[in-house]
Nucleic acid binder design. Sequence first.
DNA 1: CTGAAAGCTGACCATACGGTCAGGATGCAA
DNA 2: TTGCATCCTGACCGTATGGTCAGCTTTCAG
Lengths: 212, 212
Amino acid sequence: MTESTRPMRRQDIRRENEKAILLAAEKVFAEAGFGGATMQLIADLAGLPKANLHYYFATKEELYRSVVQNIFEIWLQAANCFDVARGPIDGISAYIDAKMEISRRHPDGSKVWASEVMHGAPVLQDYMESTLREWTDGRVAIIRRWIEEGKMDPVDPRHLLYMLWATTQHYADFGHQIETLNGGKPLSDRQWREAKENIKRVILTGIGAQPA
Amino acid sequence: MTESTRPMRRQDIRRENEKAILLAAEKVFAEAGFGGATMQLIADLAGLPKANLHYYFATKEELYRSVVQNIFEIWLQAANCFDVARGPIDGISAYIDAKMEISRRHPDGSKVWASEVMHGAPVLQDYMESTLREWTDGRVAIIRRWIEEGKMDPVDPRHLLYMLWATTQHYADFGHQIETLNGGKPLSDRQWREAKENIKRVILTGIGAQPA
DNA sequence: CTGAAAGCTGACCATACGGTCAGGATGCAA
DNA sequence: TTGCATCCTGACCGTATGGTCAGCTTTCAG
């Protein structure tokens, strides 16, 4: 049943194996950190022999880099929310929604990203100095415009962005702590919604966001 | 001059070496994670032969546990601010100040703590289920009282606490990112002050904190 | 002064890990 | 069907790491 037919085409094989490896790697890197992760563990989780990993990814570093870059893509995609928005209420609400969704659906990715940054971004330094900086500068400009247009109070845009990143990512990176304080149970749908609403409300009220 | 006389007493030797080892360990664990840290690296940084580390701390796990417990103490001490306060403005302001000071003075400690939690708190699980839970419940009660007394809007106390933790710790854990976005320079005194003021302002305004 | 306890360390060991490779299995184009 | 490129993998290797230990030096109580 489950394993009966295997008419796998070459392309499919490669794609599926890479996907399985990356998924397993993300989890193991998130749980153990780069140094604590082992190729054997990743291989076991992916259901492949270790040597097969090295067929697709030459080194542990290369595999790690792939994982981190994947995450960075997702992280940046959440940005679009900001651009289409008319004002801070729309834009920041949507951004918080997007980032909270990432925290909920990709907690491992978020952890790997956090770990990478905490350890000095050995892999992503280039991206941070180019792509991330440009992205940030763009959003800072948008926020500044909102302030000039009287749509929100004159809050430092950078610190506001840090606040958005911090509050949303916290639910992934410190998920274990939150879960423990929640009686050992993961947050329910309801609690996730409450978390989002709380963050939005406090921040939007806090910056004096005005309806566009 | 610097190294002339060494009338070290036993007690002093032990205290100073343990201190040096713990300091070095904190830094190495923060930079490399538990798995990436090596006893050799810690020993070198502490200026001691590796075997000497094992004289004071039998295993890497034991050393790590000591580091983490130290940090947990500091983390909890910032709590006192909350207790003595009359209302949300005093209490939360003081707490933000205290936590930002920790982020600035103990970034390595903060990172180790973050790493520990991200990896499922293998060492601190017990503390989190006892001490941390009690501490949190206590603060939740205080915030609830403030709400009942009309000193602030009815914001979910837990999510507010997470927000405080997230925003303040972010400046330590993601310090590298912030530094990169700051042109590769660490935040100046002024910028730290601005960061603190921004956080306070947004959150206190956001929760509708009323002067006691 | 003396002996025992505390502090110290170079040399060593077992293990685990990242990585390699020769050679087998499999799909696929011609 | 055939030949080749891709895919796969068990067995192996060198190294780095956590940890041990025998024996040395230093402190200090009596």
